[in-house]
């Protein structure tokens, strides 16, 4: 049962990710990206990472992609026009690089060259579920990085607000407002 579900989600993920790249309308691209993030959340659930799966939907599908949609609607973007020799060349190069990367990745995965090191015999305590286990690790061993990311978020928040607000106009009035 689980492998079939995995294959289903994987197929959906690849198809929607391709549509993100191929579709000419940015809004449609963004919607396909939401779909691919959601199917990735399904894969996380199958890999027994329930907490990460749910956070994936909350953060990516619920917050980040809404922000993308807002910006696309705010800028009122229509279909992309992509014509001309330069773009054709770039497209050729892009797909070629992609094919090469896929080839290398396939070789590495097939030869088992990713050597993940010895496998831990004892699984971590899963009493109380995945979320509690993650919390226990996050607030003990990873406490310092956790605090650092909170500062990073603060910096990003201030930066985004400052950038979007614009400079005050010359006559001292407030600049363009959102």
């Amino acid at each position: 049962m689980v492998p079939y579900l995995f294959l289903g989600f994987a197929g959906l993920l690849i198809a929607t990710a391709l549509m993100v790249v191929l579709h000419k309308n940015p809004v449609t691209s963004a919607l396909f990206l939401v779909l691919s993030f959601t199917s990735l959340a399904g894969i996380y659930l199958l890999l027994q990472a329930e907490f990460i799966g749910m956070v994936q939907i909350i953060v990516y599908a619920g917050a980040i992609m809404v922000l993308f949609l807002f910006v696309i609607m705010y800028l009122n973007l229509q279909h992309d026009v992509e014509k001309g020799a330069q773009i054709a060349v770039r497209r050729g190069i892009g797909w070629m690089v992609g094919a090469l990367m896929l080839l290398f990745a396939g070789l590495i995965v097939r030869n088992g060259g990713f050597s993940p090191g010895p496998v831990q015999a004892v699984p971590p305590s899963l009493e109380g579920g995945n979320a509690q286990a993650i919390g226990r690790v996050l607030y003990s061993r990873f406490l310092f990085p956790f605090e650092i990311t909170s500062i990073l978020l603060l910096v990003a928040m201030v930066g985004a607000i400052v950038m979007i607000k614009g400079r005050p106009a010359a006559d001292g009035a407030e600049g363009e407002k959102e």
């Binding site: 939401v34 907490f51 799966g53 749910m54 909350i58 599908a61 917050a63 579920g129 995945n130």
Partner: peptide, 19 residues
């Protein structure tokens, strides 16, 4: 065991229909 998170996730997806 992540029921509440599922509720939060789904309520954040509820934005899409309306937008």
């Amino acid at each position: 065991n992540v029921g509440l998170l599922l509720f939060l996730a789904m309520s954040s997806l509820g934005v899409y229909g309306i937008t």
